[in-house]
Design a protein around this nucleic acid. Structure first.
Lengths: 200, 200, 200, 200
DNA sequence: CATGAATGAGACTTCATTCAT
DNA sequence: TATGAATGAAGTCTCATTCAT
């Protein structure tokens, strides 16, 4: 029997460790050695796989954000109605959080909501997500499904902002977080944005 | 004629300088000497008035956030309808940005959206704002002005998240920013949240 | 009745405050503002009376050390026997500690035993004390009261060192300290040095 | 022949450098960069091996003091007479100074005689030395070799104080220092303490 | 005399990154 | 690949001292 220890992917190990420590301590308070410790490797190895501490974060972000971009575009392609498209997008984001809250916390807290520092690097990728959502809205307006007096870009910001704030609320324990809450949120956030708070 | 050189409030000078450099470079990339230079005072004076660089930021945040809290509570007290109350809140926030975009940028980017680091310190103050907004929604539901199937805390997050995201959009140049845009935003954000995107 | 608030000697007040804080925190850990606080004056005033923080310590030392020098010389002049002279010196030092342990602590810990830093400045004054004691020994040898095979300078160091170590022991709670202990120490230290530990 | 550059122990190099600069400038006036310069290593390496500048001093002290403690205890175990025991102790201390005067200077000036600051940390170790010496005296009293009217703790202080003062005298050039002086001191200090200054 | 705001040099410590092994 | 010793730039904070009032 060819016996060899299963080749543990150290690179992956480091990335996963980074998620945990970034989530716990924040990017700035995390030392490269913290990541290495958590990963159980020497800290020099981090530099074997990544150019810098920042690149680790960048990698984490890009990995995940590309999935989001793909999901939005897929939703746009495949969705039956504009509202269904938004529901798919909302569901994808909430699911992402549900499945890997630490990673989403890192992405939101350290990148998306820190456009001043690291977000700066990824502004164009972030913008693309907003634009894709705006396109869904714009198409919806053209199709008569959405009112026309609200700028699509504006609506996109409101929609995405509402969702991200929910995630923040969960992350920082400002609103209750349970599987049920996550499930409800997926439709409620779309209900709020599409139907409005006032009774119809 | 009692004549005396107008006593320049150095403390204020330092705070104002901090707003500018925090907005430009971000808190972490700002050295205390940057603040002092910008304020035109000696290095050590910052430490004469503040215990640390962080305390400067804390002061900036608290100063402004207490105004927001007061504004929300006043809106709640004095507003004619729940919707009008929300409009007042939205207007206050947008106005704040319009009048001092740098300060609002600092508060949002470095505190509100960085709950991981500095926001942690102010979580209770931040929470109070969300709760006050939630109360407006809850009262609105009781009065029949708002639908009842959306949790007030949830609605509050969506509402505040939408506004803050708009500000982020302006800050990072993701959506057009002009006085007209600001003006429209005040009502549109409430229209979005209260009436929904779908035509009535 | 000429009424005037008794002119509080601020200079004295500062010196006394310095004794307390130097004794408590040590010279290096004492800020000028600590002295001022303890004295109940603004810290600028310290600079009105003293050129620097170090000068405060110097003053404290010189004030006291000159008394010691005078006491040794008086003992030498007036003592009946060499041994009586040493007893007078020992008694003076122990009394000094008994009456103002904080001051003696400062002098010993910060000057006498810190010849590396501040003691350096006062080395010649310190040396004079040792020499005066050595002279007492030398005279005693000439008079046949002391053995001749021990160098007077050497004996002086042993004598002074023994006493100072006792004070250190009291200061740092290494040996019991009570009025009775002080009283006994005066004669015992001379007994030790003059008669020796071995029974006669 | 396996040839490899002799692995220079940088940690040791730093400690030795610290001895030199602490002895020359005193602990407080020594910057960490002085130590690094003297050791010929980079600034940060000091912090690679030691948590702080103070820890360097602590290490230096503990390293040496443990030898002293061992020496005293060995002297107590192996000495023929109480007086011989004290002679061994005195000889060990004087030898220590003779072999490494800089180290002993640092230990005495910065730790032993600075019980206020760094000595505080080591008070218990210092106390142990005094107690071990006191035990030698107490045993000597019980055996009838020493007079009984002098408290052993008291005698211990006198004995140790006398020796340390001699070292101080050498360090600060208050008394002549030569190999002959060192040699004589070993027996003379015991002669002084055991036989007394007065002729028998 | 008295105050305390203002100054700014100085020192410690951290930690990302490099590199020899 | 993997390690961790070594580097050194960078930045926070302290505090003695000055000085205008």
């Amino acid at each position: 029997m060819g016996s060899k220890a299963p080749p543990i992917d150290k690179r992956r190990q480091i990335l996963d460790a980074a998620i945990r420590v970034f989530a716990r301590q924040g990017f700035h308070s995390t030392r490269v050695s913290d990541i290495a410790d958590q990963a159980g490797v020497a800290y020099g190895l981090v530099y074997h796989y990544f150019r810098s501490k920042e690149e680790v974060l960048n990698e984490l972000f890009s990995e995940r954000w590309s999935l989001l971009l793909a999901a939005i575009e897929e939703a746009d392609r495949d969705g039956a109605t504009p509202r269904a498209k938004l529901e798919t997008v909302a569901a994808f984001i909430v699911d992402s959080y549900q499945h890997n809250p630490e990673l989403m916390k890192v992405i939101i807290v350290e990148v998306t909501r820190a456009a001043n520092s690291f977000g700066r690097t990824h502004l164009s990728e972030i913008r693309r997500a907003y634009e894709s959502i705006a396109k869904i809205v714009a198409d919806g307006q053209e199709a008569g499904a959405f009112r026309r007096d609200i700028d699509p870009a504006f609506a996109s910001m409101a929609f995405y902002g509402a969702i991200e704030q929910l995630l923040s609320g969960w992350i920082f324990d400002l609103i209750p977080a349970s599987d049920t809450d996550y499930e409800q949120a997926k439709t409620l956030v779309v209900a709020t944005i599409c139907d409005g708070l006032e009774p119809r």
